[in-house]
Each structure stands twice: as structure tokens, then as C-alpha cells.
């Protein structure tokens, strides 16, 4: 599928806390050589390493409170 972004730089958003946001589709090669693919319009790549759906964000980076 052609889209305007084919002609322009791919947009990423980095955050101090939270995932790296990348325009999809995305293919990620992990440490152990396995490859994960996501075809979403925007992909949230986990940077805190706590995600249980790694390499995709599952909001595990969120601050947690005891109450």
C-alpha cells in the first residue's frame, strides 16, 4: 500500500517514560534472533523491558502505587 509517508522520513517519538512510537508496519529482530512483526499503523516498542508482550508495549512501564 502506498502512503504519503513512503516519500517522507519515518516518524518516531521517543519518551522519557514509555515506549518508542514508530510508524508501522515494523519488523523487530530480538537478541535471540527471533523476529516479531506488527502491521499496526503505529507500533509502540517497549523500552522498559518489563512488557509481557515484548517487544511490544503493554503499559507495564506505568508508575505503580500501593493503594
Amino acid at each position: 500500500m502506498h502512503s504519503p509517508r513512503d516519500e517522507s522520513p519515518r516518524r518516531l517519538r521517543v519518551q522519557r517514560t514509555g515506549p518508542l512510537l514508530v510508524e508501522g508496519p515494523v519488523e523487530v529482530t530480538l537478541d535471540d534472533g527471533t523476529v516479531a512483526v506488527s502491521d499496526r499503523f503505529c507500533v509502540a516498542v517497549c523500552t522498559c523491558r518489563r512488557s509481557r508482550t515484548y517487544p511490544w508495549c503493554d503499559t507495564s512501564h506505568r508508575r505503580r502505587t500501593a493503594d
Binding site: R13, G18, P19, L21, S38, R40, C42, V43, A44, T53, W56, C57, D58, T59
Partner: peptide
């Protein structure tokens, strides 16, 4: 929805 909404909430906020 775990994965989709982790993306959606970012897009909705930003």
C-alpha cells in the same frame, strides 16, 4: 486490546 490500546492511548494523548 492489551497491545492495540497500549498504542491507542499514546496516539490519543499525543
Amino acid at each position: 486490546h492489551v497491545e492495540a490500546d497500549a498504542v491507542h492511548e499514546q496516539v490519543v494523548r499525543h
